[in-house]
């Protein structure tokens, strides 16, 4: 394939005097799962927001399936097939959970993909079913626990049938058991197929996460960011042994990283 699925080139974002991401360049294939790690403030979330169009880059370009999406409107990017979740969950608090998921189901992309789905609500229910919170569909979103909010975020992202799914700390704040469950559903989603009325393309994924043990199990490749630059890029077992990475995480003299 001549063009790669997602191509990020020399991406740079400055907030005033602070350079959040500094000439980040990477590309990914259609079937890949990338883990994006790095210490706090390394620019992971900024990179995600640049790709999903919430922030506009200072310079650099992002290409998705050969099309330049740098600085495009968020909803256009979503409708091209890039869905993302928020690190600090942003549900529509006063709406029932099912209505939360109906909103992405009403986006042009989801409507086109699910032409045979007469009822938006049914599709939203299937997205909730996939995320595992369908039993609470009629509760207000403000009543959900932290872990369930994470699932709601995932359900909302999945409901647009994305081709590239960007998850920002999907395991953050979850108990070990919940993390296990979430990791399983992410892996299941990546395989693709049908979940009820919900169609999964088997999206490529970028996962930002701090819980490396779980992350290592599902990703093919890890990118390490530090101070806005890419420190290391490669298969998980190689990356964690990289002395530069260990130094960034633990400082000098560290031996293990988990």
């Amino acid at each position: 394939m001549a063009q790669s699925f997602l191509e990020v080139k020399n991406l740079r974002k400055e907030f005033g005097g602070l350079t959040a991401t500094n000439d980040v360049t990477f590309s990914m294939g259609r079937r890949e799962i990338i883990g994006l790690i790095g210490p706090n403030g390394a620019g992971k979330t900024t990179l995600l927001r640049l790709i999903s169009g919430i922030l506009k880059p200072t310079s650099g370009s992002i290409k998705f399936k050969g099309k330049n999406i740098t600085g495009a409107k968020t909803w256009n990017i979503v409708n091209m097939g890039i869905a993302s979740t928020f690190q600090n969950m942003r549900p529509f608090r006063r709406l029932p959970i099912v209505a939360n998921v109906m909103v992405p189901c009403l986006s042009p992309r989801a409507m086109k993909r699910g032409e045979w789905v007469k009822k938006v609500e049914a599709k939203a229910m299937d997205a909730l079913e996939f995320a595992g919170i369908s039993d609470m569909a009629l509760e207000k979103a403000s009543t959900l626990s932290q872990g369930d909010l994470k699932r709601l975020e995932v359900a909302r992202a999945v409901a647009t049938d994305p081709e590239l799914l960007i998850l920002d700390e999907p395991f953050g704040g979850l108990s070990p058991a919940e993390t296990e469950l979430m990791a399983k559903s992410v892996a299941r989603l990546h395989k693709g197929g049908r979940f009820g009325r919900l169609h999964s393309e088997g999206p490529a994924m970028i996962i930002i996460e701090h819980k490396l043990q779980q992350l290592m199990k599902i990703v093919d490749r890890i990118i390490v960011l530090n101070f806005g630059t890419i420190l290391a890029d490669g298969p998980p077992d190689v990356v964690v042994k990289d002395p530069k990475v260990i130094e960034a995480y633990l400082g000098d003299g560290g031996t293990t990283c988990s």
Binding site: K73, W75, V78, A83, F92, N100, L106, T160
Partner: peptide, 24 residues
Amino acid sequence: SNTGIILHAIREDEVAARAAGINT
């Protein structure tokens, strides 16, 4: 209607509505 849900969503969190693919 469904339009009403989108209007609600815009009031609650416009950025999240955009990230859900809605042309706010």
